[in-house]
Each structure stands twice: as C-alpha cells, then as structure tokens.
Design a binder for these strands. Structure first.
Lengths: 214, 214
DNA sequence: GGCTACGGTTACCGCAAGTAACACATGAGT
DNA sequence: ACTCATGTGTTACTTGCGGTAACCGTAGCC
C-alpha cells in the first residue's frame, strides 16, 4: 500500500488506458462504428480480456472514447461561446465550430452519433442509444448553463434556458447530420440559415400566396 | 400468371405481413427495443425463417415497423400543420401533437429513436442508426416542404426551408427526448418555450448583468 | 530459491442474426 | 387417382459477436 508505488501503478494503468483508447480511435476511424472488440484489441497489439479489464464492457470503452471526443468538442464550443463578440456572432461561431468539427472528422462523428451504419446489416456494433444521447444531453446542459448565465429571460429563466439548450443543440445536431449527408450548401450558408432561424426569421417572414402560411 | 390468382396471393401475403407487424409491435411494446427475432416470431405464433422470408432481414422488419409509426405520426403532424389558424398556433399545435404522441407511447418512441437502452449492456438490439435517422429525415423533409410551400422566404427559399425543416425537427426531437426523460415541466410549457425560441425570443432577450450576453 | 502480483493468452460459453435443407399441404394437369 | 409444382412451415445448423474463466510467464520482494 505504498503511496508512491500505488501512484506508479496508477500511472502505468492510465498510460495503458490512453494507449488503448488511441488504438480504439484508430480502428474506429478506419472500420467505422462496426469495429469489434477483437479488432480493437488486435490494433492495440493485445487481446480482448485486457480491454475488458480496463473498460468493463463495450459500453465502458465506448463511454471513455465518447468522453474524449465530447470533452474536446465541448471545450471548443465553450471557447466559441465565450469569445468577446455580439450574441449573434457568438451563436454563429458556435454553430460553425460544431459543424467544422463534424465536417473535419465525419468518421468520428458518425461513430459517436450513428450506431453502425456500415456494411453488414446485422449490427453487433456499438450501442449508441445509451451513449450518443448522453453526448447530446451534455451539450444541451452546457448550453443551457451558458444561456441561463448570460441571457436575461425573466422568471422561469432556468426552465426556459434548459429547454432552449437542448432544443438548440438538437437543431444543430439534426441540421448538421443532414448537411453532412447531403452537402446541399456551404458551411457558412448553413450557419447563416440556422442563425436566421434562431433570430426569429420564421416568425417574421410573410405568407406565401395561396392562403394563411405555415 | 393469372392476374386474379396473383392478387389473391399478394393479398394473403399482405395480410400475413400485417399480422406479423402487429405481433412485432406487441413484443416491441412489451420487451422494449431488445426484442429478438425469435421472440417476435414466437409472438406471431411462427418461427424465424418466415420473418426473414417476409422482411429480408432485421433491418427490413425494423424499417417496415418504423414506417407504420412514422406514417401515422406524419399524418397527425400534417393535420396540425394544415389546420386553419395563425402560424404561431399551427407551430404550437404541431409541436404539441408530436410531444403528445411520444408522451402517449414512450415505448414505441424509444424503440423508434433509441436503440436498445434496455437491460443488458450488450446490445443485439435493433440498429436504429440506420433507421431512426431516416425517420427524422422524413419529418425534416416534410416540414421543409410545408415551409417552402407556405412561407415566403425570398430567394434561396428552397435551401432555407430544408435547413429549417431539419433544424426544427431536430430541435423538437432533442427537446422532446430530454423532456420525456426528465419531465421538468408540463407539455404546454415546453411547447410555449420552444415556440418562443422559434419566435426569436433568444435574439430579443436582453443581456444579463455581468458582461455581454450569450 | 520460492512466492505473490500483475500483464497476458487461450479456449470457451451464451446468444442472436441469418440460412440451408427438409416436411407438409393443396390445387392443377394428365 | 397419381403426380408434381408451389407456397408455408419447421428443425437444425453456421457464423460471429460480447463476455468470461482458467491458465501462463515474468518481475520484484522476502
């Protein structure tokens, strides 16, 4: 029970863990979300049981992997959110940061968000339902915190901020997902369109000819 | 190759198919998304290969099942969208319809949206990545059509409408998902909060004390 | 040298998707 | 009445994954 020794062990374990995560990252990048535990273990140069010793089960590995990326992304988003500029600019910067991230590493993004869209119809892939949504939830909560902290919403501000946080994140996510798949326009266009939406342009727009509008 | 006979066969097949889908629905409702093909077959009073003869693979069954629910939901949404009222009221009605649907049948909803959050961490459940997002996509496209058809957005209206359609659907989805999990407020409150967001209240709100706002 | 502790492996279990090959009915053609 | 094609169903299997138990080797400590 020597403290230093324990620290040494811990360090070693942490290093190993990081190595394993890097390997997992690599294989996920290569094979997509259908990466199997065997494949990851092989990439790391070891065998399955070690993975399980480190991460418990596949969910644990996934959670660790997701946490890495989520933390990085959240850091970037927070930076964009905290930049010194007007609110609209910040919103656009945040949207752009998110979209740039998913654009830069679509494989990672798809891994985090979409469970196994790859080759085989039979899945066996990661279960994202239990983990990708926590990712969205975390983003939503973070954004809610920022909104509540910064924007004056009168009474009910707490509830309102949380609804908006999750709603805006969902908007960003869905639009980004669609955009990433179809690439119907430039990133800047998408950012503008979304910011316009948030800025109430839907409410402000006039009806089209032919009856009361949407 | 007699036509009437062929129709008879087709009808029989269709009836069978519908029965199987009902059975699948029941078992999914009961067992959650981790329903196995065996369980579904058993519920239908038959065995696996028949399911495969009808639906090809699990994805096919899932897609058929999802289509049923999606069609129903889309019908309801379209009705809300097409009701004779002001735009804001329509938006609120649509949001409320969606939320009421997921509130009324959370099991179905979770099945459609979340892959296997049930019991075992090891999944084997349905692969939603490849099917739930098509659901969101469909809703997004439908909404985009309605927006473009009804709202005057000037040039670029097509692109803008599609972005907004997917964005709004994503907002609704994420907020609904979070709300369904935490139930932090009444449905009406949520609807109002989201509609307020879409109506530009974020842009209109003042900064909070302590520096430039979000 | 012997002994514990830890990193590692092989070999296995359970389970679900998906399939091949076989069985039984039923109606048409001769 | 016999056969034979066709659709409906079954049993029994393969494959491939997640997850685990039980077994090795080697480093350090007494």
């Amino acid at each position: 029970m020597d403290t230093t020794q324990r620290t040494d062990q811990q360090r070693s374990a942490d290093r190993r863990r990081r190595e394993l995560l890097e390997a997992a990252d690599r294989v996920v990048l290569r094979d997509g979300p259908k990466a199997s535990m065997n494949a990851i273990a092989a990439e790391a140069g070891i065998t399955k049981p070690i993975l399980y010793r480190h991460f418990g089960d596949k969910g644990g590995l996934y959670a660790a992997l997701a946490k890495r990326h989520t933390d990085a992304l959240l850091g970037a988003l927070r930076a964009a959110l905290d930049a010194p500029a007007e609110r609209r600019e910040r919103v656009e910067a945040t949207l752009d940061t998110y979209l740039a991230a998913i654009e830069a590493r679509p494989q990672v993004y798809r891994f985090l968000m979409h469970p196994s869209e790859g080759g085989t119809p039979s899945d066996q892939g990661f279960d994202v339902g239990a983990y990708s949504f926590p990712l969205l939830r975390r983003m939503g909560e973070e954004l809610a915190d920022v909104i509540e902290e910064r924007v004056d919403l009168g009474p009910d501000s707490q509830r309102l901020a949380r609804v908006w946080g999750h709603g805006i994140v969902g908007m960003m996510h869905a639009a980004g997902d669609w955009w990433l798949g179809e690439r119907p326009c430039s990133r800047a266009d998408l950012v503008r369109a979304l910011a316009d939406l948030l800025w109430g342009r839907l409410a402000a727009a006039g009806d089209r000819a032919g009856g009361p509008g949407f």
